[in-house]
Simulated assay, not measured.
Amino acid sequence: MLSYQHIYHAGNLADLHKHGLIAHMLEYMTRKDKPMSYLETHAGRGLYQLDALEAIKTGEAAQGMSKLAKFYPPEHPYTKVVAKTRAEHGASAYPGSPLIAANILRMTDTIHLCDLHPQEFAALRESMRPFGGIFHQKDGLEMALALTPPTPRRGMMVIDPSYEMKSDYAVIPRVLFQIWRKWNVGTVAVWYPVLANGAEREMVKVLKDCFPIGLSSEVRFPPAREGHGMIGSGMFILNAPYGTDEEARRIEGHFRKL
Rank of each mutant, 00 (worst) to 15 (best):
P74W: 01
E75G: 02
E75D: 05
H76K: 05
P77K: 02
P77T: 05
T79L: 00
K80C: 08
V81Q: 05
V81M: 04
A83R: 08
K84E: 05
T85F: 00
R86S: 07
R86C: 09
R86F: 00
H89N: 05
G90Y: 00
A91F: 00
A91E: 06
Y94R: 04
L99Y: 10
L99S: 14
L99T: 14
I100W: 01
I100K: 02
A101S: 07
I104P: 06
L105D: 04
L105E: 03
L105H: 02
L105V: 00
M107E: 02
T110C: 11
I111H: 04
I111A: 11
I111N: 07
I111P: 12
I111C: 15
L113A: 02
C114N: 08
P118Q: 12
Q119L: 08
Q119D: 04
E120I: 02
A122E: 11
A123C: 04
A123R: 11
A123Y: 03
L124C: 02
L124N: 01
R125Y: 03
R125Q: 02
S127C: 07
S127K: 13
S127D: 00
M128A: 01
M128C: 01
R129N: 09
R129K: 10
P130E: 01
F131G: 00
F131H: 06
G132P: 03
I134G: 15
I134E: 04
H136R: 02
Q137F: 15
K138W: 00
D139Y: 01
D139S: 12
M143D: 01
M143G: 08
A144G: 11
L145K: 04
L147I: 10
T148N: 09
P149S: 09
P150V: 06
P150C: 14
T151V: 08
T151Y: 02
T151H: 05
P152T: 13
R154G: 09
G155P: 07
M156T: 15
M157D: 01
V158W: 01
P161C: 11
P161N: 13
S162Y: 06
Y163V: 10
Y163G: 14
E164M: 12
M165C: 15
K166V: 12
D168Q: 12
Y169V: 03
Y169H: 08
A170Y: 15
V171L: 15
V171F: 01
I172E: 11
I172K: 13
I172T: 14
P173R: 13
P173T: 13
R174C: 10
R174K: 08
V175A: 09
V175L: 05
V175S: 12
L176G: 10
L176K: 07
F177E: 12
F177I: 12
I179V: 06
I179H: 13
R181P: 14
N184Y: 14
V185Y: 11
G186K: 10
G186D: 07
G186R: 13
T187M: 09
V188H: 13
A189I: 08
A189V: 09
A189Q: 09
V190G: 03
V190S: 05
W191F: 13
L195A: 13
L195M: 15
L195Y: 03
A196F: 12
N197H: 06
N197I: 02
A199F: 13
E200K: 10
E200W: 11
E200T: 00
E200D: 11
R201H: 10
E202L: 15
V204F: 06
